[in-house]
Design a protein around this nucleic acid. Structure first.
Length: 1085
RNA sequence: GGGCGAUUAGCUCAGUUGGUUAGAGCACUAGCUCGACAAGCUAGGGGUCACAAGUUCGAGUCUUGUAUCGCCCA
């Protein structure tokens, strides 16, 4: 694969060309099949399933983070010899995608989904999906992700559909799927229920209307009206009761006690306010309590109220939801349109519930005729006006209301009572909790286990139906039986949803229907195993189908019912019977919640329900890397379905990574205009820089703030993104004044805006990665330039110089550190270790020191072998983070040094992708060598510092001596050439007694002192100032140490080694002070 | 309202079980084009570790409280 390479010579550019490397290597990796995993590969498997990105839109920086982290792990594991499968794919993201396509349809063509019809719209969404899936996959490839593209899946593809159907059928057969009435968050724009998780709350300015409801036939002394207050007056049309607290006096006591407790604990500035509240409560005892007690008695008597405007009467009831401490103490109850009122209804089932809304948010036939068809907003105005006209409006207060909005359409949510499909969660949730508490699934960082367990422990049933067209259609047919069961038995209240009760009670009565149905279906060639029937609400049949053939058969039945077809003779009698006992049969229109299909992702992608070789080999997967906001929605549900379908958890570890925020600490999103397209970063800095930057900032505790800038496409000036300018469609450059368009223009701009050149959004935080890549590139160039004549051979330890041993020792340490860090998801630690080693040790010292050795024929060969080996190891360690650069250099290195290694040189792998992951050679780790080298570094640093502080021009050669112990002197003297080349300084002597020139600038180090001869550059004042400053600093340190050691408590209670260490430090520091004093004395006046 | 997390240099962040004079990158200052690298090199300035109390011989690190910010859940 090296045929198309340039020769590795010095004509390589001094800037790393990331674009070229990216476009060259990715296709080759793919052709070579490095990313493809086979089930019959005997090596141990390592599997990650990608958190499938939504096909809603292109990937943003958060995805880049998520996928980079996965890729780093996959690439390392691949090098470690695992059979790595990274399963890629995308998510159909039901509601989100349909909403995007619908919005676009409306904006661009002025059409609604109803204009297109179900098939037409779904067709459009498929087109959208194709377009964005392509873009997303392109982005992942640009990023360097080593996914097995031969196995790409989509949550709505045939394979996933099979898994979904199988799972649904299994759940249905296990009686874990039921249909119930629930108050849902109704999005009137999209006309679908949205889950709680898709709702956000926004405070808006609103009002509090106080209404009077007349009491019917009040007894003497009883009030003629009951006052209630509401923020949503139009819902009164659906009221079914007014509630008063069952024990208002005790409730007031309770509230008062709580307030007093709060008062005692409250900080001074809040005390006044709480005190005022307590007093107000006291007043209420006088003003309102007697009346509430009276109302309570009236409720017990069964008093009815007149519900104004409707001609209905509603009961006054007693319920704890009424708050005697607030407002009038009474509350209207609208069970079909308020969560709390719904709960009241559950406790007082007789009051019933009245749904006054149409799916489109207008008032329906349950409202009085004059309001029907009005929107809620218009209904509100009308109701308020009519109440006022009837003299039943008491007052209007201003009030801020926390209003629920749909995350998808951004319109207000209407609570709405609707039939919904649910998955029973009690047992399923428990299995998912057990998996984590047993330690079968480990969540990292550990604190997120709490999020997971807390959510599951609520065991709330999962509403899985969505009134959408884009998704897996629920495979159920519904119809009403015409056979009336005998309800003379004492049935549970039909309003209470309990499928088990209904089922057992009514089972006898439907056996007849079931028999007819199975006869019919058998005649159509349908097996009993292909469908499952259950009874709902005593008279509704739910037929869950497992096959398309079964659906066709039922469709045929529907056609008979509609008179569109006539049954064959042989089934005619059966069909006639069936048609007598069944009402019209309809297929469920709803589709499943997207998370239903994503929940199956780890096993559905591997072929379940087929028992595939892949499933056997790669399930359970190894690890899941995802972001914390879907721990509950996705992770928990994958565990639950994994255990349910496979009998085994889907993965053993879950790593939750941080989130990328913008410079203001806000989450990035397209809708805020502060998103960053990874491609912009890749174009400007390169994929390697992006990846390294991401790894570098992926720490365990913190989310990451990333201030972002627009880059002017005309002059490359960076313009800080602010909350204000991020939603402009065009910006004029601060510097060149020319306008450019922004990403906001794509969705909100005019054609004129979009015609302008686009300003990329980038962040200077990726400069770190770019600079690092460039540094490595140049260090590699240096090595390549000097490897001419390289011959592989075993290197004898005796031939290694101090710097070689030091480098190898450090390399071994770093190898261990990086491996351990990556294995435990400490990406930043790994990145920082590599950055520090490569830049500050390999480049700044080893490369500098080895320069002179390349000029020495005798030393050249060993130096070449060591540097080739070190570079080889470094490339392998860095490859998971910066795959393109490392591959580029790996190939170049392979041309001049095809065989590498110290003890036993071996042929290098054909690609760094498949090279072996380095193992630290423990025999190379040598603390003594590292300490000795540190002495050298200190002396070199002192010389450089003195040179600068004395303003000695860099070109001037200087001489210096070092006072130190003999052993140190023996170490330093042979390093003479390095002082020469790295500080342009000659070490003339070193030892216990050395003769220094009369005029020196000195620096004292622990156990050593460096004296630079400055006869020719002498600046007494500068030197004195510097020495004094240093002495004062040290004196302070000495004082603090002496104080510490003088403290009897410290000496007696601290561990001996700590005390000893302090003593040693003190002695050293005192020595340094003395030598500084001496140097000062030598300066004279 | 409940839970989780954060607050360290102008900015973005590290700082392992408490133990040197608290680190890095960017930005800043001064000097440097020496054949790997100006996206660079050398040196330098810059911090009361949010605030308060406590535990301890010793606190950026542990405890409690306060303030501010973020996220999740109701």
């Amino acid at each position: 694969m090296s045929s198309d390479l340039r020769p590795p010579t010095s004509d390589l550019s001094s800037q790393y060309d990331h674009a070229a490397a990216q476009s060259k290597w990715y296709p080759i990796w793919q052709e070579k099949g490095y990313f493809h995993a086979e089930a019959d590969d005997p090596r141990p498997p390592f599997t990650i399933v990608i958190p499938p990105p939504n096909v809603t839109g292109a990937l943003h920086l958060g995805h880049a983070l998520n996928n980079t982290l996965q890729d780093i792990l996959c690439r390392m594991k691949r090098m470690q010899g695992f059979n790595v499968l990274w399963m890629p794919g995308t998510d159909h993201a039901g509601i989100a995608t349909q909403a995007v396509v619908e919005r676009r349809l409306l904006e661009e063509e002025g059409k609604s989904r109803h204009d297109l019809g179900r098939e037409g719209l779904v067709e459009r969404i498929w087109q959208w999906k194709e377009q964005y899936e392509k873009r997303i996959i392109g982005q992942l490839k640009q990023l360097g992700c080593s996914c097995d593209w031969d196995r790409k899946r989509f949550t709505l593809d045939d394979q996933c559909a099979r898994a979904v159907r199988e799972t649904f059928f299994k759940l249905f057969s296990d009686r874990k799927i039921y249909r119930g009435k629930r108050l849902v968050n109704w999005d009137t724009f999209l006309q679908t229920a949205v889950s709680d998780d898709e709702v956000f709350h926004d405070p808006v300015k609103g009002h509090f209307w106080h209404f009077k409801y007349p009491v019917i036939d009040p007894q003497k002394g009883e009030p003629k009206h009951v006052t209630i207050a509401t923020t949503r007056p139009e819902t009164m049309l659906g009221d079914t009761a007014v509630a008063v607290h069952p024990d208002p006096a005790r409730q007031l006591d309770k509230v008062e006690a709580e307030l007093k407790e709060k008062l005692a604990a409250a900080p001074a500035k809040e005390k006044d306010e709480i005190q005022a509240q307590i007093e107000a409560l006291g007043d209420r005892r006088q003003s309102i309590l007697p009346q509430l007690i009276q109302l309570r008695k009236m409720a017990a008597r069964g008093v009815q109220l007149e519900l104004p405007l409707t001609g209905r009467t509603i009961p006054l009831i007693a319920d704890i939801w009424a708050k005697p401490e607030l407002g009038s103490g009474c509350v209207k109850i609208t069970p079909a349109h308020d969560e709390n009122d719904y709960q009241v209804w559950q406790r007082n089932i007789d009051i019933g519930a009245i749904n006054i809304l149409n799916p489109d948010g207008t008032l329906n036939e349950n409202a009085p005729e004059k309001y029907q068809g009005l929107t809620m907003k218009k209904g509100r105005t009308a109701v308020v006006a009519d109440m006022e006209a009837a003299d039943l409006l008491v007052e209007i207060e201003d009030r801020e209301i926390d209003l629920a909005h749909s995350d998808r359409s951004k319109t207000p949510i209407e609570p709405y009572l609707a039939d919904q499909w649910f998955v029973k969660m009690d047992e399923l949730a428990q299995t998912a909790m057990d998996a984590v508490t047993d330690g079968q699934v480990k969540i990292l960082p550990e604190r997120y286990t709490k999020t997971y367990l807390d959510w599951l422990s609520e065991k709330r049933d999962w509403p899985v139906g969505r009134q959408l067209w884009w998704g897996h259609r629920i495979p159920v047919w519904l119809c009403k039986t015409q056979i009336k069961p005998d309800y003379s038995k004492n049935l549970a209240d039909p309003q209470v949803v309990d499928p088990n009760v209904s089922l057992s009670l009514a089972s006898e009565t439907i056996s007849e229907v079931k028999k007819q149905l199975s006869e019919f279906l058998r005649a159509q060639g349908i097996q009993a195993s292909e469908y499952e029937v259950s009874l709902h609400d005593h008279s509704y049949l739910h037929i869950c189908t497992m096959s398309d053939a079964c659906d066709s058969a039922l469709l045929e039945l529907k056609r008979y019912q509609n008179g569109e077809a006539t049954p064959q003779k042989d089934v005619r009698t059966t069909v006639q019977e069936l048609m007598r006992s069944l009402g019209p049969i309809e297929r469920e229109d709803d589709v499943l919640d997207t998370w239903f299909s994503s929940a199956l992702w780890p096993h559905s992608t591997l072929g379940w329900p087929e028992e595939t070789a892949e499933l056997k080999k790669f399930y359970p997967t190894s690890t899941l890397i995802t972001s914390r906001d879907i721990i509950t929605l996705w992770v928990a549900r994958m565990v639950l379905t994994g255990v349910y379908n496979m009998g085994e958890v889907p993965f053993s570890e879950v790593y939750i990574h941080p989130k990328i925020l913008d410079g203001y600490g806000e989450t990035m999103s397209k809708s805020k205009g502060n998103g960053v397209d990874p491609l912009d970063v890749i174009e400007k800095f390169g994929a390697d820089a992006l990846r390294f930057g991401i790894a570098y900032l992926t720490t365990e505790t913190q989310d990451v703030r990333m201030p972002v800038e627009f880059e002017c496409p005309h002059c490359q000036t960076l313009i800080k993104q602010t909350k204000k300018n991020r939603t402009l469609t065009r910006i004029e450059c601060d510097k060149c004044g020319k306008p450019f368009s922004t990403q906001w223009a794509e969705s909100h701009g005019t054609d004129d805006d979009r015609a302008l050149p686009r300003g990329a959004v980038v962040s200077e935080r990726f400069e770190l990665g770019r600079n690092f890549c460039n540094k490595l590139w140049n260090a590699s160039r240096f090595a390549l330039m000097n490897l001419e004549g390289y011959e592989a051979a075993a290197v004898d330890d005796a031939d290694l110089l101090l710097e070689d041993r030091w480098l190898l020792s450090r390399l071994a340490t770093v190898t261990d550190k990086v491996t351990a860090a990556l294995n435990s998801y400490h990406y930043a630690d790994a990145a920082r270790a590599l950055y520090g080693f490569a830049w500050d040790e390999f480049c700044s010292f080893y490369v500098e020191m080895v320069k002179s050795r390349f000029a020495e024929p005798k030393q050249r060969a060993t130096a070449q072998r060591v540097i080739a080996h070190a570079l080889d190891t470094l490339l392998r360690l860095l490859h998971p983070m910066i795959p393109f650069l490392t591959e580029e250099v790996w190939q170049l290195l392979g041309q001049v040094a095809p065989e590498r290694g110290l003890a036993k040189p071996q042929a290098a792998a054909e690609s760094v992708c498949v090279a072996e992951w380095p193992e630290a050679d423990a025999s190379h780790i040598d603390k003594t060598i590292e300490e000795q080298f540190a002495d050298f570094q200190k002396v070199l640093g002192a010389v450089r510092e003195l040179r600068q502080s004395q303003n000695i021009p860099p070109k001037e050669a200087i001489t210096f001596v070092v006072t130190c112990e003999k052993a140190t002197a023996d170490l330093l003297m042979p390093l003479q050439p390095y002082f020469e080349s790295m500080a342009r300084a000659t070490l003339e002597d070193a030892g216990v007694t050395v003769v220094s020139s009369p005029r020196t600038a000195s620096k004292s180090l622990s156990g050593m002192a460096v004296h630079v001869d400055i006869s020719e550059f002498f600046d007494v004042d500068a030197e004195r100032t510097r020495l004094e400053k240093e002495r004062d600093q040290l004196a302070k340190f000495v004082k603090s140490l002496a104080g510490k050691l003088g403290n009897e408590n410290f000496v007696s209670r601290a561990p001996a080694e700590v005390v000893d260490a302090q003593r040693q430090k003190l002695a050293e520091a005192e020595g340094q002070v003395a030598s500084l004093e001496a140097a000062l004395a030598k300066l004279g006046d």
